[in-house]
Design a protein around this nucleic acid. Structure first.
Length: 212
DNA sequence: ATCCCGAGGG
DNA sequence: CCCTCTGGAT
């Protein structure tokens, strides 16, 4: 099947991003699938850098699903407070760990459908866990950076993250779904920032029509 | 559409 | 004081 212009554009963007950020990886620190799940829940509306400041002590005291589920709620809230939304996040972390123990035999599930049953977990978090803990390309991780850059680059007109993900899945080869996300996120952090995009420095500017 | 919530920079 | 910063549930 012949590639559309949009597909060619997406591949060109991916090629440049791979050159710019050859070693890009998930920047959360973790030792196990559960820890990655918890770190990703904590990363909602919060930088990975800040998450990485609370998780060392958090995981030292509560390293697995059992200890997290049984932890004192107040202690847990205090440990994660600086990541924001700490009451919701603490409740979701304990709810997710409880469900993992009761319904999934203590193991983080390896399918999108099952991950979405966990409280505080939607497609963004599920995609991160599937890709980085299990090496499964179930979808494209669409966070605020992927959303913003995909719109600015003209890869999607949608505003709903689920529709954006579907558009991107259609434009990129499955083996590159997470490669694309992780590098778009790097680029969004460093160059194509939400408020003040640095279009002068941007190596993608020649195929981008966005002007602030 | 609205709520949850803190840290750090200008 | 104002703003930004890697979501999810109701």
């Amino acid at each position: 099947m012949k590639k559309s212009n949009q597909e060619k554009k997406a591949l060109e963007i991916l090629k440049i991003l791979k050159q710019l950020y050859p070693d890009a990886t998930c920047s959360l620190t973790y030792d196990s699938p559960v820890q990655l799940l918890i770190a990703t829940i904590l990363s909602a509306q919060c930088t990975d850098e800040r998450v990485n400041k609370v998780t060392p002590e958090l995981f030292a005291r509560f390293p697995d699903a059992e200890s997290l589920a049984n932890a004192d709620r107040e202690v847990l809230e205090t440990l994660i407070r600086s990541t924001g939304f700490y009451r919701n996040k603490a409740k979701n972390i304990q709810g997710a760990c409880q469900k993992i123990i009761e319904d999934f035999n203590g193991k983080v599930p390896r399918t999108m459908e099952e991950l979405l049953l966990l409280p505080g977990v939607a497609r963004k978090t599920a995609n991160v866990v599937l890709a980085h803990a299990f090496g499964i390309n179930a979808g494209v991780t669409v966070d605020t950076h992927v959303k913003r850059l995909s719109q600015r680059l003209g890869l999607t007109k949608a505003t709903d993250p689920v529709k954006i993900e579907k558009d991107l899945m259609g434009l990129l080869p499955q083996e590159d779904w997470e490669n694309f996300s992780i590098r778009i996120i790097y680029h969004g952090r460093q160059i194509c920032k939400a408020r003040t995009p640095n279009c002068q420095e941007c190596k993608l500017a020649y195929l981008c029509s966005f002007k602030d």
